[in-house]
Write a protein that binds this DNA or RNA. Structure first.
Length: 108
DNA sequence: CACTTGACAACAA
DNA sequence: CTTGTTGCCAAGT
């Protein structure tokens, strides 16, 4: 049952993010070429009610854990990321650009 | 049906 | 750092 097409797409892409990597709203939105970064964030918000989506691997364009506030605990996101080998400094991803993963990479 | 809000992007000042 | 704009589109009120 599809609620909304792009929701599923965002979930799918987000699930493709490998551990130890992060992605951005812009990257996903750009890859889907559907809506916009807002839609991605919005879809991720609903991801809690959806299937298991590693939303903690999705950050904003600055690498900030902007979504941590929506997690059960604001620190959970950092814990999860650090658990995957991602360094978090000041609620931001260290070497963000290096860890940045794009959906298109899977196609390469 | 109109308006506002939203885990945003990207730039400008 | 903040405040502002424009684009984008669905859900909530």
């Amino acid at each position: 049952m599809k609620k909304s097409h792009y929701f599923e797409q965002v979930y799918e892409v987000t699930r493709q993010i490998p551990a130890g990597r992060v992605s951005t709203y812009g990257a996903i939105a750009d890859f889907l070429a559907l809506g916009s970064a807002r839609m991605v964030g919005w879809a991720l918000n609903k991801s809690f009610s959806a299937e298991d989506v590693p939303a903690h691997r999705v950050v904003n364009r600055k690498g900030e854990l902007s979504g941590r506030i929506h997690f059960p605990s604001p620190t959970m996101m950092e814990e999860l990321l650090e658990n995957e080998g991602i360094k978090i400094v000041d609620h931001k991803v260290c070497d963000f650009k290096k860890l940045l993963w794009k959906p298109a990479e899977e196609l390469l």
